[in-house]
Write a protein that binds this DNA or RNA. Structure first.
Lengths: 185, 185
DNA sequence: AGCGTTTGAGACATTAGTGTCGCAAACGAG
DNA sequence: CTCGTTTGCGACACTAATGTCTCAAACGCT
């Protein structure tokens, strides 16, 4: 196989990030395969979108796993919790394009299975935020779901910064961590 | 006229916020007019989208004007600058749906005129951020364009919080201001 | 009530995208 | 080199949405 399904999915995600209305023909082209071959891999457009969402969630989950989010959520040491949050932000920046698809694309919100998985991943983060609040790493006065949405928003902003070229990729993690913990003031 | 263009635009924006792929027939229905009448007001779908984008920008601009953004950008008093930033965030929450359309919809990025106007409004905010940095209200170490994107991201998160019902509308401005200036830590 | 305007309903042609198929060419393992 | 598989290409039917048009009904104003 000259072009694998993985490659098709990757190309499609990246293309859709800037052209959310791209057609199957467009996506076939950017993947370097014919329209027929694309349909051989993904029988329908919906199939493809689900695969993209699934990949996005897999990247997200892997970022969470790579920092040991579950163990960290049971942690009470402030420094460790702070470190885990920082590491997670950094890991998410690395997969900004893929994870960003999960954040912003409409495909996620119409497929019950993807939605459920996304909720699960979000719940894991919320558990981490709650642990961080108990340890005094995050302010206890903020609703934990607001922290989650603000976190999500900052990541959207980070992706946008990278896309526009406003911030160098190597500077992004530090800025993001700094802004999340201490704000802009 | 039973239904004005304003009402059509409002209904369309709100509907598109949750159903970004709605058809003209859908939008006619939520506006309470027939498809033919919708086409009498907006000759093409593109026409309508441009009108929506224009409305979104108008709301955004009005929010900026209501806090006197231009005068504030020439200001050097920290308290005043901080107040202006807070007021602007609050004003933007009030038009979260309309302004949010400008933030997230693809229509903005394909129309040169809308894009130009959006850039202009963004530049006005950036001038305000820069003034705030000079006055020590915002950290000078952060790239001003990153501040702008983080600000934008937090607003996206705020809109999402409201849409989901995670945060009460009356609590939103305070949370947003608090998080923007001091972060979650 | 009468008149000019606006609206809704439906029919229509057109377009763009989707999904399927068959066939010939390219490819790769043996 | 040869055979089985995979690919690209083009054709095709089908669908959904768009934009146009006509006509009769509803409406508002005087």
């Amino acid at each position: 196989m000259a072009v694998t399904e993985e490659q098709i999915v990757t190309a499609a995600i990246h293309h859709l990030n800037t052209r959310p209305t791209a057609s199957m023909a467009d996506l076939a082209e950017v993947a370097g395969v014919s329209r027929a071959t694309l349909h051989r891999h993904f029988s329908s457009r919906d199939d493809l979108l689900v695969a993209l969402g699934s990949r996005a969630l897999a990247c997200w989950e892997e970022a969470q796993d790579s920092v040991g989010i579950t163990a960290a959520a049971a942690e009470s040491d402030p420094d460790r919790l702070r470190g885990t949050l920082s590491d997670l932000l950094t890991a998410l920046v690395d997969v900004a394009d893929e994870h960003g698809f999960a954040l912003t694309d409409h495909a996620m919100s119409v497929n019950p299975d993807l939605l459920r998985r996304a909720d699960e991943l979000e719940d894991r983060e919320i558990a981490l935020f709650a642990a961080a609040q108990r340890a005094g790493v995050l302010r206890a006065g903020l609703p934990v779901r607001w922290i989650s949405n603000a976190w999500y928003g900052l990541l959207v902003g980070a992706r946008e910064s990278l896309r526009r070229g406003d911030v160098a990729r190597r500077d992004m993690p530090a800025l993001l961590v700094e802004t999340f913990f201490r704000g802009a003031g």
